[in-house]
């Protein structure tokens, strides 16, 4: 069991690195946004895992003695999810505009066109 005491954190790092890898290696801008959302979710998982108490229950009070998990990370992440979708939408809107301006959503093609325009 002791090997599992940090298991959640290891998975968080693994997911975070997969998201990071997608962001740096894929040239397609939508794919980069997908990578960012994986990265983002890994941070959510980190927070929520830290708030968990083994044997605890959801922080909705009811009569009697109970162990409740920590409500504070839940609040932070709850709002972060909705803000996350709003910012993702903004990113997607930018991608659509880029596509209309350059005719492509591939990073290399856009950079190439930029350089040609400057010359």
């Amino acid at each position: 069991m002791s090997a599992l005491l940090h298991y959640n954190y290891w998975i968080v790092i693994l997911l975070m690195m997969i998201g990071f890898y997608i962001v740096i290696t894929h040239a397609n801008l939508i794919k980069k946004l997908l990578g960012l959302s994986i990265f983002q979710t890994s941070v959510f998982i980190l927070y929520i895992s830290m708030g968990k108490i083994s044997g605890g229950t959801a922080p909705i009070l009811y009569p009697g003695e109970h162990v409740y998990s920590n409500p504070l990370p839940h609040v932070l992440i709850l709002t972060a999810i909705v803000v996350g979708i709003a910012t993702t939408a903004l990113g997607l809107a930018l991608v659509v505009r880029l596509r209309e301006a350059y005719g492509s959503i591939v990073e290399d093609v856009i950079q190439q066109q930029e350089q040609e325009d400057q010359r």
Partner: peptide, 11 residues
């Protein structure tokens, strides 16, 4: 599973 029902709902 992590008792964060509100978060799960939103996600």
């Amino acid at each position: 599973l992590m008792d964060a029902v509100d978060v799960a709902f939103t996600e």
